[in-house]
Design a protein around this nucleic acid. Sequence first.
DNA 1: CCTCTTGAAGTTGTGTACAAAACGGGCATG
DNA 2: CATGCCCGTTTTGTACACAACTTCAAGAGG
Lengths: 236, 236
Amino acid sequence: MVTRAETVTKQLRAAILDGGYAPGARLNEMALAEAMAVSRTPIRAALSVLFAEGLLDYEPNCGYVVRRISLDDAAHIYTVRASLEGLAARLAAEIGLGDSERARFQATLDEMEHLVSGQAWEAEQQERWGALNIAFHGMICAATQNNYLAASIQRTRTLPVLTERGLKTFAAERAVVWWDRAAYRRSQDDHLDIGDAILTRQGTRAEAVMREHIERSGRLINQKLAIRSEALLALP
Amino acid sequence: MVTRAETVTKQLRAAILDGGYAPGARLNEMALAEAMAVSRTPIRAALSVLFAEGLLDYEPNCGYVVRRISLDDAAHIYTVRASLEGLAARLAAEIGLGDSERARFQATLDEMEHLVSGQAWEAEQQERWGALNIAFHGMICAATQNNYLAASIQRTRTLPVLTERGLKTFAAERAVVWWDRAAYRRSQDDHLDIGDAILTRQGTRAEAVMREHIERSGRLINQKLAIRSEALLALP
DNA sequence: CCTCTTGAAGTTGTGTACAAAACGGGCATG
DNA sequence: CATGCCCGTTTTGTACACAACTTCAAGAGG
């Protein structure tokens, strides 16, 4: 990470995913340049990258705006993600894990289980569980030994208002409990099933459970977004 | 299409997919700027877009090179594509086609069948069949009413040396027959099965046949690429 | 003979000035 | 009063100059 263009790209991406720029907001090149203390050149490079990543919309001679994800879009993305993560789970089960991967995989599952079944369930535990969750899915991606698949899945996870990070930030800001504890418990049960299926090389089962697992999160998040957008519509 | 950056992007993309720039070739900004009679600014914008699309590799301070797709990469991409197109076929079957879509769908299938079972099978027929093939898959994507899925599938098809267009160009240049006629016949049989499954709303069957259909093309193309790369390795 | 340094050429990154296009407000006109 | 045109302002698109970095080769030193 040496060039300013890359620095700016990273900062902007993080800001958008964190909700620093609301969906629909115009991104003024001059304003961004001043805010980040660089010229417009690296700003423009960053914007074109984020546009290609799907985080921004662009109209020639009109500029960039933060992409607004509709409820339908979110559902569509989760449909694709469920299919891809299902595929990854099946491949991981069929290929199998190496000894060290296996150990780390099991350890991650164990720690998540410990957290979710423990007495304390505050922000700290939830955050840790979220990080482990990402690591869990990441390990499955890595086990497929298919970089294109891993990248495709990653893309489905880095969209405004839909990443774990974005959701968490929103939850923290508004003091909204996105999931109740039962949902986490249910999610963890899925993880245990998926882990078991992968470790015992049951590809079809791993795929089916993973698919359902992702589709359930999709439905949950869609419900939450629907409530949120109703609330936003009711404001003015 | 008004800005020079967009014009240049389109031209460059087409040139790369047509094989005008070989995989691994360095893209010199100054040279491109002179060749296209613009300054480096729109060239750089175009390069960053094509990098984000996955057509180019990029290293800061080193520049862009046309991405070199290994045989493994190609296999990985086809694995993902098979899964996604399978999903699309299933969704299309479950959702169903409208009357006019249904008619166009059937007409496309009929014309392909007419071509492949006809007496003449020259470049003209093969080209037409290829175009109808793209249209056929496109109609299935459209029927899912899921733009994200359609875009994801599109991405798997626009990679250097792997698009229909790239292959065709290569075949035309080298007078290599990529597929023998039996392979086209087999492919057409798949299409008939997929079409039937979709029109009769058999989602699971549509998914399974489509998956196998794509995976078969993947295997065929991988074989051809393997032969090609052996030939290239034997040259110097 | 090999390795490391050094410098020059060439390529990419960044800043900036200017051109062109879109946006917005005010005025004239129906 | 509504509507449409015109012009100034703002914002984006492009060109170009310069700075920073990489690369490669030649030469000194081991």
